[in-house]
């Protein structure tokens, strides 16, 4: 009940979101875990982006670069999967 009230009254309730409990006094791991989660959710990237104003031309350039990078990464991933694939008809193609 208390929790649901807190969730309703506050859009960013503290100590519910972005919270990690420390296990066995292992602070390092907890910190790293929360950093990892923040990084993966893109919060840290957004925080760093919004420290200084980004001019529209810079936004355009950044977005274009990200698109190119994503396409390249996808292709490269496919290539790597192709080379590393198992169960080939011919186990060592091109080798006799």
């Amino acid at each position: 009940m208390h929790l649901s009230l807190r969730l309703l009254s506050n859009r960013h309730p503290s100590f519910i979101a972005r919270t990690v409990f420390v296990q066995n006094n292992d602070i390092d791991n907890a910190c790293r875990l929360i950093n990892r989660i923040m990084g993966k959710e893109g919060l840290l990237a957004q925080y760093r982006l919004t420290r200084y104003y980004e001019k529209p031309f810079q936004t355009r350039r950044r977005v274009n670069h990200e698109k190119c990078k994503a396409i390249y990464n996808e292709d490269m991933e496919r290539k790597i999967q192709f080379v590393l694939r198992k169960n080939r008809h011919e186990p060592f193609p091109g080798c006799y």
């Binding site: 503290s14 100590f15 972005r18 919270t19 990690v20 409990f21 420390v22 006094n25 602070i27 907890a30 910190c31 929360i34 923040m38 919060l43 840290l44 957004q46 925080y47 919004t50 420290r51 200084y52 104003y53 980004e54 001019k55």
Partner: peptide, 23 residues
């Protein structure tokens, strides 16, 4: 100190007011 939990409270906004000019 015995630390129970670690919370991150960094203010992150996706429609922030215009930030200061770039360095």
């Amino acid at each position: 100190l015995n630390i129970v939990s670690i919370t991150d409270n960094t203010h992150v906004s996706w429609n922030p007011p215009r930030a200061r000019k770039a360095r």
